[in-house]
Design a protein around this nucleic acid. Structure first.
Lengths: 335, 335
DNA sequence: TTGAAAGCGCTAACAG
DNA sequence: CTGTTAGCGCTTTCAA
């Protein structure tokens, strides 16, 4: 049924090795041979058996992209760019949801999923124990995001700086009462949570320490969470005149809350998001956003993988990807 | 370095076969054996070599999800749901961009990507020749979308009915001049393009045949394409009072165009989209949308795959997934 | 119920 | 430059 190298070899009247050489573009094959083999390859419709190749070489050519959920916020464009970057560097991408496995144990528990050359982890925060589990398996792991681990390769955005930049942007447009939406409830108290840290730091530097309750936790990262948090903020006596949202999705929810509360954006309140989603570019008003370049992140991550596969014992590399503020209508200077 | 079945067997003092039986939960193993083997498995940190297993069994446990682009519109929620459905049925998902391969030939040309048990194709329209290429490889192919092919399994939405429903919905809210945004330029003339067909049919039945130019082609499926098409429509003498957009993304672009043109939605013009994206639920105004349930689509598709793998020669199955209109602000009855 | 051995398709070491 | 061959780790007859 399926054509093997041997079939092709027989058909072309050459040895298996030669066919293999042709298939893999190895040198030291005469043009005449190459031509003949190519012909046989085509005639028989040869398709390489990846499993056999993998068994022999130890390389699958597969990268696992492990994320909480493909559509999780903060991931805008990342999946696409990882697929692109991986493809262009000769890998294919297996998408895996964190903790999704009903059958086998979830990757979060067992460490690296089997059958891949490396794992890209796009989860913030990194589930506890995951890094250790990986380290035990020996499969290279690259962290993508804002939180890191000194023991593995990572390409990350400086969340503290990014949040501070967002605050400074709002201050520059004349805002004084700046709130934040998007702290993870479980981590709200951890002072190290990078964005909250940056938010507080920037406000302190500006002499604008926020009142209690200005940092709103959310359950999940959905429009409605942003909406609810914003409604709550807008109902306060000391209503904020600027809101930093930890994703564009939350920010769009906040925009709607402002409208429902009869507030004008940016007149009464400015809103800034994270992630530069397409949605934010077409919301009303259009949304200012802080973002890194997902294509860059993805390329760097895949490059890290190849480097790691070449030298498994090199010390971990940490790459910091730049971020930028994309100013749009939602933060136009007031007045 | 890596632990093999033989290592475990030696460690437990049993044969390879017995270890294999335990790993695969085969019956006919005494409890005592099982216990001892389990222990050895754990102690040595055994991890099965998927490549070897695949080479032997012919099954990779991998499904390729081939799409134009992970973030392509019309795919809202599909990738996530395919990953979920596949996981729960024991598969993993390799995401492949159509024609993305810079190295090897793109899957659109060579047929099925190698090393997967089946291919799910989420591309509308299906690239010409792709189905033939697949058929030649023998890898099962399941089509997801609105266009189909009688030669392979498919789970699809009735695009003609869906578009007709959208038009009827607008008519019911009192609209008379109904335009459409989203015809693919290359196919604009093909009368079979299902949505355009449904659009025209429903209008004809309502005695509201559209004037020339009311069907706007777009280059891609982005906000700005919807925006531009809508601006053009709104600048006409016979400005439409209802617009059917072939994706939510286009529709959100159209909403913005309406605002920029000084038109109120739904007062002056109603807008309806396709896909029930989260974005449409939080746009201003919120967007009415026609959609199928992506989770259902995905589950059916994976079920089709397993059925096909069990009986390769069964006749192709076609499943039609239901769709529904989710009425929101953008199509509230006028007046 | 368990063990021994063959072989899936491929690559790489070695021989010619 | 080309051919022969061993063996990657696993499943699975077949025999005990």
């Amino acid at each position: 049924m399926t054509t093997t190298l041997r079939d092709v070899a027989r058909h072309a009247g050459v040895s298996v090795k030669t066919v293999s050489n042709v298939v893999n573009d190895h040198p030291h094959v005469s043009d005449e041979m190459r031509r003949r083999v190519r012909e046989a390859l085509g005639a028989l419709g040869y398709r390489p058996n990846l499993a056999a190749r993998t068994l022999r070489t130890g390389r699958t050519g597969l990268l696992a992209l492990v994320v909480p959920d493909v559509e999780a916020p903060g991931l805008h464009g990342l999946v696409r760019e990882v697929v692109r970057a991986a493809t262009s560097q000769g890998f294919r991408v297996v998408v895996e949801h964190l903790g999704a496995g009903t059958g086998r144990p979830a990757p979060s528990r067992s460490g690296a999923p089997p059958g891949v050359d490396a794992v890209l982890l796009g989860a913030d925060p990194v589930p506890p124990g995951l890094v250790d589990a990986h380290l035990r398996t020996g499969t290279p792991l690259v962290l993508l995001g804002e939180s890191g681990d000194p023991r593995c390769d990572q390409v990350c955005v400086d969340g503290t700086r990014a949040a501070a930049d967002a605050v400074e942007h709002l201050v520059r447009t004349g805002r004084r009462r700046i709130a934040a939406i998007g702290a993870r409830p479980g981590l709200a108290s951890a002072p190290a949570q990078p964005r909250i840290l940056g938010y507080r730091r920037a406000l302190r530097r500006a002499g604008l320490d926020p009142p209690t309750g200005y940092v709103r936790p959310i359950a999940e990262d959905r429009h409605e969470d942003g909406y609810r948090a914003a409604r709550w903020l807008f109902a306060r006596e000391d209503r904020p005149d600027g809101v930093v949202c930890h994703s564009d999705r939350l920010a769009v929810g906040a925009l709607r809350a402002a409208a429902d509360a009869g507030l004008r954006v940016p007149g009464d309140v400015a809103v800034i998001g994270f992630g530069d989603s397409a949605e934010g570019g077409y919301s009303r008003p259009t949304l200012t956003s802080v973002s890194a370049d997902p294509a860059l992140l993805a390329r760097e991550a895949v490059t890290l993988v190849t480097a790691r596969l070449d030298r498994p014992d090199a010390p971990p590399t940490r790459i910091t990807a730049p971020h930028a503020i994309l100013p749009r209508e939602s933060t136009r200077p007031a007045g």
